[in-house]
């Protein structure tokens, strides 16, 4: 097991450098520079003032030098200082927003797992039943609806019409004066819609996948064997089939991390959540190079980590993988 782990981690190193190189190149495709944002329609900003800002930010250095410097500092988890007017370290900004985005994404993943697996399994064990057909419709609609539109409809319905849930942000204004339970509910109620909606299309996809995986397993010999041993259908399904069907599902879940993180831009924008997706979007729009590089890399790094966790847990469950030499 240890040697498997080591081998697996070693394969990550070239990936990691590939990631930093690509994110660096992407950002330097662009013309323009953050100085211009400071000059935003300001009749009082002159050419000398701009030049001064350029020297200040050292944008005059050649590309490879900037990359090399950045990489060295990156290994020390120092992403540099943001180009925005607050000039804060990028890492500070990421640290502020990452927990929020991770919380929402982990909750979404859990929700997807907890809901998709049982309904996928159920519809696999009752193929072509009414529920199965309903699920199919749900899946296709879930795939096909533009999420921001759905989010806005949900906001109007649950928050404006019914007044059940708050509209935006993470905490109410009077949060500090609430009781402990009140605080908890306040926080949870702010999260309900964002988590639900960001889980929505993943839910559709994964339940479909679960159903397929389950049907596949049910065709296998050992299930037939289990049945012929006289085990009840429920036992067959939940003890034998489910466990084996889950394995590929976990991998898929790991692979869906990047799209969840990507989707957070949209949800954080709509629900006014101060998370990393929005941080990234504002960074992109103002060409805050260090910030965008930092988040791209951290995002990729998280995915790498997610895949590693998925693979390792897979290997723990299924010894063939370990011996198979990754």
């Amino acid at each position: 097991m240890t040697s498997y782990l080591i081998r697996r981690v070693l394969t990550l190193i070239p990936l990691f450098f590939g990631i930093t190189l690509i994110s660096f190149l992407v950002i330097h495709l662009a013309p323009g520079s953050p100085i211009d944002v400071l000059a935003d329609l300001n009749p009082k900003m002159t050419a000398e003032a701009k030049q001064r800002l350029i020297t200040y930010y050292r944008l005059d250095k050649p590309l490879h030098e900037r990359y090399w410097q950045w990489l060295r500092r990156f290994l020390a988890l120092d992403f540099g200082v943001s180009f925005s007017a607050d000039r804060r370290p990028v890492m500070d900004k990421i640290k502020e927003t990452l927990p929020i985005t991770i919380t929402i994404n982990v909750l979404s993943l859990l929700l997807i797992l907890l809901v998709a697996v049982p309904i996928g399994a159920y519809s696999a064990s009752h193929p072509y039943s009414t529920f199965d057909k309903f699920l199919t419709v749900f899946v296709y609609v879930g795939f096909a609806i533009p999420t921001f539109w759905l989010a806005l409809l949900a906001l109007i319905f649950f928050s404006v019409q019914l007044e059940w849930l708050p509209i935006s942000g993470l905490r109410s204004l009077d949060y500090a004066n609430l009781s402990l339970v009140g605080k908890l509910w306040d926080f949870v109620s702010h999260l309900i819609l964002p988590v639900l909606l960001s889980a929505f299309s993943g839910l559709a996809g994964l339940s479909r996948y679960m159903r397929g995986s389950m049907l596949e397993v049910m065709r296998q010999d050992y299930i037939t064997a289990a049945r012929s041993k006289g085990l009840s259908e429920a036992e067959v399904i939940y003890k034998h089939a489910l466990r084996n069907a889950l394995l590929p599902v976990v991998t898929i879940l790991g692979l869906s991390v990047p799209s969840l993180i990507g989707g957070s831009v949209i949800f954080e924008q709509i629900f006014g959540i101060p998370g990393m997706g929005r941080l990234f979007f504002t960074g992109v729009m103002s060409r805050d190079y260090p910030l965008v590089m930092g988040i791209l890399t951290i995002g990729a790094f998280l995915t790498l980590l997610g895949n590693l966790v998925a693979d390792v847990s897979y290997a723990v469950v299924d010894p063939r993988i370990r011996r198979g030499g990754g």
């Binding site: 662009a30 990234f280 060409r287 995002g299 990729a300 995915t303």
Partner: peptide, 17 residues
């Protein structure tokens, strides 16, 4: 490597840049 990137982030960065 490409699969590790949140694709939407990559798209955003390139388009806006």
């Amino acid at each position: 490597v490409m699969l590790c990137f949140p694709t939407f982030f990559l798209i955003l960065a390139v388009i806006a840049f």
